[in-house]
């Protein structure tokens, strides 16, 4: 994963303590690499007053302390970062792979049947499409460091729930739009839950709190409801 030239970008004001940098290349992969490289550079550049950077798919939110630096100064840091990252050799840590057992449907995946009906395919086909893909973790999102991924090859984007759930359990495996995710912690949610993994994803007594990072690879594997309990208590860990 090497990028020698940053994608073209646009920088937007986002209040007195943040900027949004959006990458504008044709290829979404170039945009993703650009915003993650930029975030890494900003995190490590050591500039006083920068709190950090939140990269997602095509954008990065840069947060700062407006007493120590101004939005104009941070804009200059960002431009410098975009130049500097082009000079780096582009080597990044090799991605690690994670294997995620999932019980699909029933009480574990209450939206599986609706998703299948909306797509006009069988629930088995939904599971097949969801398990056959290798997913790249695009970014860590809400809640609690969720691994945000490009979704399976369904015929259509998946609409969000009209009435979001007040609570989705930890381990919920969900899809929405063209995205896929696992919920590391219980939280309200409007995504369609098609299954649940029995593995523990989030551990607040460990740093990092979640075991994967952007660029790592996930695969889902279908298990029987009867096997769920035998995995409970195990943590999600990279394949050796």
């Amino acid at each position: 994963m090497s990028v020698l030239t940053a994608a073209p970008t646009e920088i937007y004001e986002s209040g007195d303590s943040a900027l949004r940098v959006v990458a504008l290349a044709e290829a979404s992969e170039d945009n993703w690499l650009t915003v993650h490289r930029l975030a890494d550079w900003l995190e490590s550049c050591g500039a006083e007053g920068l709190h950090g950077a939140v990269p997602t798919y095509d954008s990065v939110l840069v947060e700062f302390d407006p007493v120590l630096v101004s939005a104009r100064q941070v804009r200059a840091f960002v431009k410098l970062g975009l130049l500097e990252m082009g000079r780096s050799d582009g080597s990044a840590a090799a991605p690690r792979a994670f294997d995620v057992p999932v019980v699909y449907g029933g009480e574990f995946g209450p939206d599986l049947e609706n998703v299948a009906a909306y797509q006009g395919i069988s629930t088995e086909e939904v599971i097949r499409l969801h398990t056959e893909k290798t997913y790249t973790v695009r970014c860590l999102g809400a809640p609690a460091g969720s691994p945000m991924m490009d979704g399976p090859a369904f015929p259509k984007p998946v609409p969000r729930l009209k009435d979001p759930r007040l609570s989705v359990p930890a381990g919920a495996v969900a899809v929405a739009g063209r995205q896929a995710v696992i919920a590391p912690a219980s939280a309200p949610g409007g995504w369609c839950v098609i299954g649940q993994t029995p593995l523990t994803v989030l551990n607040i007594r460990r740093e990092p709190l979640v075991p994967y990072k952007p660029g790592d690879i996930l695969r889902f594997r279908s298990i029987e409801a009867g096997e769920f309990d035998s995995y409970v208590g195990q943590e999600l860990e990279p394949r050796p």
């Binding site: 949004r20 798919y57 954008s59 990065v60 939110l61 947060e63 970014c139 945000m148």
Partner: peptide, 12 residues
């Protein structure tokens, strides 16, 4: 149209 997930600032 679909909006990709993005980082949102406090105060949004």
């Amino acid at each position: 149209g679909e909006v990709l997930s993005r980082g949102v600032p406090v105060g949004a």
